[in-house]
């Protein structure tokens, strides 16, 4: 069993971190994981994306053309990555910034007003955690408790930021769970 998910958005939206927390959670559960960033000039403020692969078997190719899932935080990401998804995948779409709809009817789309939820929780910066929570809620790719623990561990250095991030993960998770499987 192997699942690939692309996290994509503007530079600064925290998509790389969201992917890293997911990969670390998977690793903590004894799974095989790969976190592959897009790198290059686009790191400096343009679009950013990373691919996370979680598998039971050793991962062969880290390069995936047709990923199963996508977590897209802005419109260019939706337009770039959702068409590449395999059928039956999950697309978590940040509707705070994306007004258009995907035309795909063979995937599960989870609409998440991530920025709105994050701002209500205390900071718009944590929109990535809303998206991550929603993704885990929709797919059940890792147990939510394990994700929470890993996120707390990652934010240890800034203890003040833990409550808002946890809150965003939980809000997202609820939304994802409701719309997912």
């Amino acid at each position: 069993m192997q699942t690939e998910v692309v996290f994509a958005g503007f530079g600064g939206q925290g998509v790389m971190l969201a992917g890293k927390i997911l990969a670390e959670t998977g690793m903590g559960l004894g799974k095989e994981v790969v976190w592959l960033p897009s790198y290059g000039p686009e790191m400096r403020g343009g679009t950013a994306n990373c691919t996370v692969i979680i598998a039971d078997e050793p991962i062969a190719s880290p390069i995936v053309v047709h990923q199963r899932d996508s977590v897209v935080m802005n419109r260019p990401s939706l337009e770039k990555f959702v068409p590449k998804m395999r059928a039956q995948g999950y697309a978590i779409v940040n509707t705070s910034l994306i007004q258009v709809k995907s035309e795909r009817d063979d995937i599960t789309v989870v609409d998440v007003p991530a920025n709105k939820i994050a701002i209500a929780a205390g900071t718009g910066k944590a929109a990535n955690m809303v998206m991550l929570g929603a993704y885990v809620g929709a797919t059940g790719i890792v147990p939510f408790d394990a994700l929470l623990e890993q996120a707390k561990h990652v934010f240890q250095k800034k203890p003040k930021s833990i409550p808002v991030n946890v809150k965003c993960l939980k809000e997202g998770y609820k939304l994802g769970q409701a719309k997912g499987k």
């Binding site: 990969a23 790969v34 976190w35 592959l36």
Partner: peptide, 10 residues
């Protein structure tokens, strides 16, 4: 290759 340098793995 660049991938070995840039990707994260356990």
């Amino acid at each position: 290759d660049g991938m070995i340098g840039q990707m994260m793995e356990p």
